[in-house]
Simulated scan of single mutants.
Amino acid sequence: MRNLFYFYRILDRSRLGQQREHSLNGAGMAFSSLLLIAVSIALSSTAQVLLKMGMSTTRIQLALVDGGIAALLAIATSPAIILGLASFGASAIVWLLVLSRIDVSQAYPFVALGIAITAAAGHLLLGEALPALRIVGIVAILVGVIAVARS
């Protein structure tokens, strides 16, 4: 956690008393803000893949059939699920840093990039199908994100 805040301090070019970055400042979003957004999205997408990997294990699938406490214990002790939840937590912390720097209306559409990254990771790492219509939808999302980023 301390390293994360050190990372943020390195990226943060502003000093105390200066205003945070604004979306309509004429120069676009600072590189450091884009980097923080990318880190948050990557951590969130990683979390999704890890959670899916954990929930797909034979051990958890069998425990889910049995239900009850056995299922909860199997889920709570799965290394992939623990790492996935930790990744989500780290993503949330980085996202808070993003929100401290830019307008939420400009930052939040970037979260949609996670859809494209997670779909690609699911396809490449988990062998999930990626039909043409889904790809068209992802491209539409990416076009929207680009439009918001340039506004």
Results as ranks from 00 to 15, higher is better:
Q106A: 14
A132L: 13
G54M: 04
V39R: 02
G67W: 03
A92D: 11
A107N: 03
V136H: 02
G114I: 12
L24H: 12
A92H: 12
I60L: 10
Q106I: 12
G122P: 05
L51Y: 11
W95S: 13
Q61S: 13
A47F: 11
Q48M: 10
A90K: 02
N25P: 06
L133D: 15
L72F: 09
T46F: 05
S23Y: 13
A47G: 04
V94W: 00
I102E: 04
I115G: 03
V111K: 15
K52F: 06
Q19W: 11
L85Y: 05
A70C: 02
P131T: 05
L72P: 00
I93R: 07
E128R: 01
V104R: 09
L83D: 02
I60S: 11
L72K: 05
S40I: 07
I102M: 10
W95P: 14
T118H: 06
G122I: 03
V65R: 15
P131S: 12
T118E: 02
R134Q: 15
V98Y: 08
L130Q: 06
A107I: 11
M53L: 13
Q61D: 04
I82Q: 02
V104F: 05
A76C: 03
A70V: 12
T77A: 01
S40A: 15
G28N: 01
S100R: 08
A74V: 04
A119L: 11
I60A: 09
S33A: 08
L24Y: 09
A42P: 10
L124T: 10
S56H: 13
M29Y: 01
A132H: 11
A132N: 10
M29F: 00
G67D: 05
A107Q: 07
L124M: 08
S44G: 15
A27Q: 09
G137K: 08
A121I: 07
F31N: 01
A116V: 15
S100G: 07
V65I: 15
L99H: 03
V94M: 02
A120T: 15
V49D: 03
V65Q: 14
A47M: 04
A30P: 01
S32K: 00
Y108L: 09
T58H: 11
P79G: 03
A63M: 06
I69N: 15
V104W: 05
I60K: 07
S105C: 04
L72M: 13
A38S: 08
Q19H: 09
L97N: 00
L99I: 14
T57N: 02
L62I: 07
G26R: 08
D66L: 10
P79M: 06
F88R: 15
G127Q: 08
Q61Y: 05
G68E: 05
